[in-house]
Design a protein around this nucleic acid. Structure first.
Lengths: 341, 341
DNA sequence: TTAATCAATGCAATCGATTGCATTTTTAAT
DNA sequence: ATTAAAAATGCAATCGATTGCATTGATTAA
């Protein structure tokens, strides 16, 4: 079999042209110190010799990897994969590489991944924390050493960093208000774990809307769970067994909204006539279910783009003085059949 | 502000313990040459000194990155994100990092990404090629240098490598046969670009099923396009304008199946009564649309796991002699309402 | 023409871990 | 106790690109 031909290095090029390796290095990096003619000749020779820069050597020397780490709860989830897609889009344009991991909503895995990415010297980290996560030492690892950090969606208040969120409170408020506008009096809610601010905010928005409308807020009208398809079924079952049945439900995601709709239909209720439903996130299925699910659209791709832009600008600028900002991306209440008779 | 405290290196540890750096290095890597007691002491000191290995230095020296590159057409696509999820799952267990890029189905981007990943010295590459891709020099880059390569789904016949596919031919055959079993006589097809073998195979399976059933194969009964939602609408419109209207349609993906269903419903046709539909891929929405779409389920997560296993085993074993195999993963025809009256 | 200035290029150290080979220490056997 | 064998550790080169500083060559002003 063929033996690996050894890679050509800048030293080989230098030798071939009878110049020094430093000049070659500078020329290839378009350093203005090098004369145009020299640069041209060097680049041409490099081309001819099939030179491929050894990125690892450069990274090692410069202490930069041009790599952005990303941790999401689950890659295989429309919102998150959209965000990743946006991140990758921007990162690629700027010459960065994106390394992706999923926490599976487990703290332990998130912790290990963070350490791995740290050890791999990613230039920055973009993440949305796991449902389980309640302590943040693994993230302080980054912030303590001034490695840029950007949170999106599921953010951490305790750590100073750029954060990208949507106006969960406002969106939930408008969703609930919309249900009330439809004449509903008993608006229940299926909510997520309250240690995550997004779910807390959605719930607060829901409560505020009820209060502002002068509707009684009855605690039994809210069920919190982890928002899976199965948990959704348990939740809707519980809600329908309560003494005062709801005539509308605001769900903290579309998955549980779907659970609710299917359960209700199977049990002889009509959606939206008997019970109106609004979800959150605008999953691809929401548009095509019958009835189509009214929901809050979150701009996943844009969030990803913004996150990448923020982290790259932090990576590139030396000044670590930057004020950290929390950016709120716009949402849109999409009204479909599930909430309007 | 605080100044960056310099990282501790193995030399620092060596100095602290008055031993050599090589011993430290070996101890930390659990090299059996080092005595148990020594190892223990070293590890403890490393811990105390807050030692963090410089992965870049190690990578540079060992010429391995423990990184697997992945290129998919679009991250934000259920099948692909499922595969990625599977890849990440296995890679993580084995201590590998996964770098992900999307080609957006553009050859040019795929080409650039491949070069970037190559320059970054990924230990292996897993990919599903872009619709546009017709030449493979950017992939030979890897195969020529014995860098493991695994194709999945959209494979390349011209390059020797492990390949993971599903039995597109058989699945399409069964899907078509299923439609014929329902008494349909004019089964049309919405197909993909034929330069991709998966679409070629699906089309061949469809044709074979028609022939075996003694049904006339009428060329006007097939429309090929790039299988987007919009193209699906164009395709179904074209099919319905043809002189002999179909009474069933096999679609090469669920997206176009959905296009067809929505178009037909808007235009007064009943699905499945007037026209039966079968899709391909089992997208999340397919189950919940009305009517639910009959489709072929592809095990994305499993494909990802298998791909990762294959590439890692290649990376770890020195022998480059391995016979390349093409693994066919099982599919399942899921019969739902869209094809059965 | 000569010194002074600026533009190009070269020298050599450096980044931190790994590893083949040499050397020392320990263990076992006589 | 002595030596051979085995086990543990150390030495020093190495990976390839980068970069501060030194040096050379070219240009300009006096």
């Amino acid at each position: 079999m063929m033996t690996q031909k050894p890679e050509t290095t800048i030293h080989d090029i230098a030798k071939a042209l009878n110049i020094s390796a430093s000049t070659v290095s500078r020329a290839l990096n378009d350093n203005p110190l090098i004369r145009e003619a020299t640069r041209k000749k060097i680049k041409q020779t490099a081309e001819e010799m099939g030179y491929r820069p050894n990125v690892m050597a450069a990274n090692f020397r410069t202490k930069r990897t041009n790599t952005i780490g990303v941790i999401v709860p689950l890659i295989n989830r429309h919102f998150f994969s959209s965000v990743i897609s946006g991140i990758e889009h921007v990162a690629y344009q700027q010459g960065f590489t994106v390394t992706i991991s999923q926490s599976n909503d487990k703290f332990e895995k998130e912790d290990k991944i963070a350490h791995t990415l740290f050890a791999n010297r990613v230039d920055g980290l973009i993440l949305s924390i796991a449902m389980e996560t309640q302590t943040y030492d693994h993230l302080k690892l980054f912030s303590d050493r001034n490695i840029p950090l950007v949170f999106f969606d599921r953010i951490v208040d305790e750590i100073e960093a750029h954060k990208i969120v949507v106006d969960d409170f406002g969106a939930a408020y408008r969703a609930t208000q919309h249900l009330i506008d439809q004449g509903r009096k008993h608006v229940a809610m299926i909510g997520g774990p309250l240690n995550l601010s997004i779910y807390k905010n959605r719930q607060d928005g829901y409560c505020k809307a009820l209060k502002d409308a002068g509707l009684d807020f009855d605690n039994s009208g809210v069920v919190n769970n982890s928002l899976t398809r199965e948990d959704g079924v348990k939740a809707i079952r519980k809600l329908m067994k309560a003494p005062s049945k709801p005539d509308a439900i605001f769900c903290a995601n579309d998955t549980t909204a779907l659970s609710a709709i299917l359960y209700l239909q199977e049990n002889g209720y009509r959606v939206p006539q008997d019970i109106a439903i609004v979800g959150f996130s605008n999953e691809p299925f929401s548009e095509v279910v019958t009835p189509a699910i009214s929901t809050i659209k979150q701009p996943g791709f844009e969030i990803g783009k913004k996150a990448a832009e923020l982290i790259i600008s932090q990576i590139l600028k030396k000044e670590k003085t930057a004020k950290f900002e929390t950016i709120t991306m716009p949402t849109e209440l999409i009204i479909r059949k599930s909430s309007v008779v």
